[in-house]
Design a binder for these strands. Sequence first.
DNA 1: CGGGATGTTGATGGCAGTCAAGCTCGGTGG
DNA 2: CCACCGAGCTTGACTGCCATCAACATCCCG
Lengths: 234, 234
Amino acid sequence: MAIASTRCLDCAVRDTALCGGVGADDLASLSAIGRRRTLGAGQVLTWAGDANLLCANVVAGILKVTASTANGREQIVGLLFAGDFVGQPFTEDSTVTVTALVESDLCIYPRERFERVLGEAPGLEHALLRRTMASLNDARERMLTLGQRGAQERIAGFLLDLVDRTAPGGAGGANSIDVPISRGDMADFLALTIETVSRQLTRLKGLGAVALPRGGRTILVRDRAILEALANPA
Amino acid sequence: MAIASTRCLDCAVRDTALCGGVGADDLASLSAIGRRRTLGAGQVLTWAGDANLLCANVVAGILKVTASTANGREQIVGLLFAGDFVGQPFTEDSTVTVTALVESDLCIYPRERFERVLGEAPGLEHALLRRTMASLNDARERMLTLGQRGAQERIAGFLLDLVDRTAPGGAGGANSIDVPISRGDMADFLALTIETVSRQLTRLKGLGAVALPRGGRTILVRDRAILEALANPA
DNA sequence: CGGGATGTTGATGGCAGTCAAGCTCGGTGG
DNA sequence: CCACCGAGCTTGACTGCCATCAACATCCCG
């Protein structure tokens, strides 16, 4: 079912998503071609190598973008949160696999129709350009991490990023994050093994930087300063 | 001195650069604000952290884009060849350092003026979007390399990329590349040490995959198949 | 011819990967 | 209610790859 314009105006990511910074006319064009879809945890949106048929906005949830080598080793090259854009307009084949890490809601556009709207709405294309440049900056920062930082720097930095992304405002003191991804996904993201991630986390617990309530995947950041020190050693 | 439109039409990268896929009007706007500049090997175009004052097209040469950690470790996050675009429109501060690896010619635009032209030339902005998306794909492929591949896979893959970029068409047999960068730069690019790069290269020589004429920085690719096998182990 | 930058080769060590065993927890069914 | 099971996580012992440290070779340029 098509999304009525009014639904767009009520959208949870109205302010942060690509469609947020765009005029009423362009919004109407977008809403005319958008369809809502919910992905269960673990479900795949697009496969690397398949025809590139769709673009989307993330309305809720978390997805991973993965690339893999010919012999099957996998690397998470990006994480997508609410408000993020998914997809590669103007390319025929998808080069990455996009998978939901938790149940996620998307607003999906057929790729070719999305491209047509882009062509008619320079403001939208501009917004997409800015987002893509921001993604490129993220990617460069990740290259720096993957190339130059050790295991504990990666973990500490990752936790800080996660806190800033999911629990904004919490400036000082204890700060909890419901870490939404498994140890395995953390490992794939940071290019470490599950065992190393686990060891570093227990080490952080020992230092009093975090608490790991047993059972869930929650991580409590108890001392941000320690994490910052570990993420940026002398 | 401003570049006359006729000079743009004669430009060495007329076909491959950003300005190549653009109409005559937009080209005129661009040429009105462009200035030529030559950078010697080792000279820096922009420093990370400085105000982001310019964008450019690479007319000739090779430049490196580097990011670095707070404690000074450095990672090359991209290489720029003739025809590539340099810069980050719409951001106030430069997050990366751009340095010429060999003497390079650039066509430089003041950032804010370039942005204005972008705003008036949707075709140009579209072309830039495509380029930025391509860069993002490159970055993702590099993340895969940095995260998942071993030293010899990195070296072999790098040589193959370099051959394809600098010596197109050479389908089979021996293929030479005037490797334009030092061992140190190769190491920074691949996140290895100089010693590891050197060892892997002599190993490739031993396997007959490459020849390393003494003296220069030239590398002769003798057996592409070996490199491909090493770059993609079972 | 000399000196500095760049590259090669060798010896050693450390960090994270691998292999393996055991733990925790949630779910299922007897 | 409890026994069982499997997925995810933790912990330990060992290994291996690449970084580090060090010595030497080579090249370039005055």
